[in-house]
Design a protein around this nucleic acid. Sequence first.
DNA 1: ATGAAAGTGGGTAATTGTGGGGAAAAGTAA
DNA 2: TTACTTTTCCCCACAATTACCCACTTTCAT
Lengths: 143, 143
Amino acid sequence: MFLGEYFYSIDEKGRMALPPKFRVNLKSGAIITRGLDECLFVFGLKEWEKLAKKLIALPLAQANSRAFVRLMLAGAMDVKFDLQGRILIPDFLKKYSSLAKDAYAIGLYNRVEIWSKEKWESYKLKTEKSSGEVAEKMRELGI
Amino acid sequence: MFLGEYFYSIDEKGRMALPPKFRVNLKSGAIITRGLDECLFVFGLKEWEKLAKKLIALPLAQANSRAFVRLMLAGAMDVKFDLQGRILIPDFLKKYSSLAKDAYAIGLYNRVEIWSKEKWESYKLKTEKSSGEVAEKMRELGI
DNA sequence: ATGAAAGTGGGTAATTGTGGGGAAAAGTAA
DNA sequence: TTACTTTTCCCCACAATTACCCACTTTCAT
């Protein structure tokens, strides 16, 4: 179970650390791919396989599901950790998500998301501001 | 079951004690997360899992539920108690809830809320003054 | 009054984040 | 092929942070 928000820097070699708590769930294998809202998704191997099965089951006839499947599958790479718990982010994924020097690793239960500093901070701000909607959502869920 | 209002100080290392009565219900695992009205929520593991299941069931395809889920899960961290019964409050949650040196821990049946001294005292004042309205609400709810 | 429990502060060892060096691999040209 | 350059990747090292443990003081109950 991934939770929380962590800040890391990406060095000149393109390496980025992930939180130790996340590593234990990913050490048996992980996949990085393009995500929604210009971030990257990182899945553990098991979660990835579940997702991949769902993806290939999507109706080929629909243009937007075709596009979604291509986004996720074609962008996928498997991830290796070095001894310090860092991963190497492929160039095309860095470009896709506007990653430069600073990044956030965000735990979302069954996946990890990687965001550029700027993108995440503005996204969070935008969401927090609509706190009325947030309260509404929470009421719906019975919190 | 959490009840009552307790006052504690947060030390330089960001540690805050919780009432011994609360600890026994949280020692098997606790999650701290963003709450409403700029306070923090602390849930026992079981309560949290109920909530988390509802969250991950929300549709990934919808932009605003994506945002809500991200806010809730990224804002959550699991909490460990040290031998003295203190928890470490993550920096970004301290910022979110304006926590500095003094704080209240408040029991609300199935969750604990953590408020900054100032925020809680002014909130309480405001609420107590408008107790007429509160009574009105209660009648609406059939209490 | 005395013992136990709770609140708060601090010290030390372990872990983590991050930079860099060097070996192995891959590529290139004679 | 061979010699040389370039790139990738693995491992080491250091500084800073964190986690863990201990100790003191105060409060409360018997």
